[in-house]
């Protein structure tokens, strides 16, 4: 079938603050490794951006197994933020990432405000890094282990500290495990965040009735996949309706239609997570599907559909 509008005439570009993306399809942190893992399966020059596995100052070993368990239309994970640490990331993972045309966004995590700030400083001069995404769903060790992502003042403080150390665009990734995600988004917007991404995983649990044991060694873990999509969509819509910085939609996206729903709700871009596991080609298929949708809708620019949800009669 001949496309009504040739692909070259479609404008898929979006801006995440100062960061321009060729298209709105990104990978979600922790689900796409450091890119190289998918090199044989996905064209790493074609994605809007790749967000790499969360990086901390020192390497982290992660949690004991079992770390993952499948649930209805989803999965729980308790990886425990296993990562190679910032030095090895820069020396061993960045050389490959620099060869890819897709933008590279580094997801960072820490257990103190100082650690986040230091990471931002370390990563700022590194060639090939286009933006930072701050994972604030981590316990603040100095504040009794309360997650940065659940207290607006703490999230704001992390954002400010990171912004002070870097000129890179800063995306703050919000946790859904809060009473009021809009308050969190507003707090980080006021602290200078260039964009917010949401949602991270929802805390959940699974039990093996036969053995009477939790299915994860960590007992609790983060729920992801299609099961969380309605919650993510609702939160994205609420946040996008309130803040004026760009919103990146994440949560259960597996098809182009899913992605488009997030764009309609107000997301400027989307991240694909768990779908990379059950369908490694998901990102490229979603991109192609979005192009198809635009042609079907008679639109030439992706920006025409962002936030174009029709309300009322």
């Amino acid at each position: 079938m001949e496309p009504l509008i040739p692909p070259t005439d479609l404008d898929l570009q979006v801006a995440i603050g100062p960061l321009r993306l060729a298209n709105p399809v990104m990978t979600a942190s922790g689900t796409f490794g450091y890119g190289a893992e998918f090199a044989n399966l996905v064209d790493l020059n074609r994605l809007g951006a790749m967000v790499v596995k969360g990086i901390s100052l020192e390497p982290r070993p992660g949690n004991p197994p079992p770390r993952i368990v499948e649930t209805s239309c989803g999965m729980l994970n308790a990886i425990g933020l296993e990562n190679v640490g910032v030095k090895r990331f820069i020396n061993q993972k960045m050389p490959f990432l620099r060869t890819c045309l897709s933008r590279v966004i580094v997801n960072i995590l820490g257990d103190s405000i100082e650690e986040y700030a230091f990471l931002a400083h370390e990563l700022s001069g590194v060639a090939g890094i286009d933006a930072l995404e701050i994972n604030i769903s981590c316990p603040n060790v100095k504040k009794g282990g309360v997650a940065f992502g659940t207290v607006p003042e703490m999230a704001a403080a992390v954002t400010q500290a990171v912004k002070r150390e870097t000129d890179l665009p800063v995306i703050v990734k919000l946790s859904p495990n809060v009473t009021d995600i809009v308050a969190m988004a507003q707090a980080v917007e006021q602290s200078g965040a260039d964009a917010v991404s949401l949602i991270n995983t929802l805390i959940g649990m699974a039990i093996d009735a036969r053995t009477r044991r939790p299915r994860l060694a960590n007992i609790i873990g983060g729920l992801s996949g299609p099961a969380i999509k309605p919650i993510a969509l609702r939160m994205v819509w609420q946040v996008a309706s309130t803040v004026s910085i760009p919103v990146i939609g994440i949560g259960g996206i597996g098809t182009a239609e899913d992605a488009i729903e997030f764009l309609l709700a107000g997301a400027t871009a989307v991240q694909i997570g768990t779908a990379n596991f059950y369908n490694p080609g998901a990102t490229e298929q979603i991109l192609t599907g979005i192009e198809h949708y635009l042609r079907q809708q008679g639109e030439t620019s992706i920006r025409a559909i962002i936030g174009s949800l029709r309300l009322g009669v």
Partner: peptide, 16 residues
């Protein structure tokens, strides 16, 4: 080990 991706990306299949 229980696996999600099989590609070394999810880090779910760890053993000591």
């Amino acid at each position: 080990s229980h696996m999600a991706c099989g590609l070394g990306a999810c880090l779910g299949c760890a053993i000591p």
